[in-house]
Amino acid sequence: MKLKLKIWRQKNASAKGQMVDYDVSDISEHMSFLEMMDVLNEQLISKGEDPIAFDHDCREGICGMCSMYINGEAHGPDRGITTCQLHMRMFKDGDTITIEPFRAAAFPVIKDLVVDRSAFDRIQQAGGYISVNTSGNTQDANTIPISKHAADEAMDAATCIGCGACVATCKNSSAMLFVGAKVSQYALLPQGQIEAVDRVKNMVAQMDLEGFGNCTNTGACEIECPKGISLDTIARMNRELMKAHI
């Protein structure tokens, strides 16, 4: 395959960036999107140009690093996948593909397609945990009875990989799907109850402080989320916050 690429180039956090056109050839339809980027970068390096910086780590859809906004969608046109799981067979020979970083004021660009998502870490640190005594006499979590239904829903929420596609997709750059997932994961389990009030208050407060927008329930995040996190988690977070204030 031969492709025309329009890619966001930005030297550093303070530089002004722009879209730059590239041509790549010899792309196999079996390649992943990141492998296509590798081919392009090798071409750039052999020409003595600066390769395109992009985040990646596991390349198997579990770390959430590979943030790219491809043809106007987070992680490209396929569903339920990250960029590293996007295959080139989703595109046609001769296509023009636009590639941009995830955009949000709370996710500043570091270089090219790499953005700083540490705002998510700070939200997690504000309450996305339970306090457990790990001094050697830790209680076995399996001794606490949990209904199958609650366990399943908590597990579904816990599959969030913190990729930020929800924020990138949302027209309001809202982080509510991410925070909803993180709040739900604990709200559904007995271990999460003790710190429930402070957790939701502090995580929402941190989310607001980081400058994420307000959810308007368009549902776009749920569609673009690689892990299928449900909008129901946002409703649960809203209920948890109401409960915490009553």
């Binding site: 106007g72 969608e73 046109p77 955009r103 309001n172 927008g213 308007t216």
Partner: peptide, 20 residues
């Protein structure tokens, strides 16, 4: 506030792909 949450907008955004 929501406009402020995204200072640089997308070159290409396919909103119709995921919302009404």
């Amino acid at each position: 506030k929501n406009k402020k949450a995204r200072k640089v907008t997308y070159f290409k955004n396919n909103g119709a792909a995921n919302s009404t």
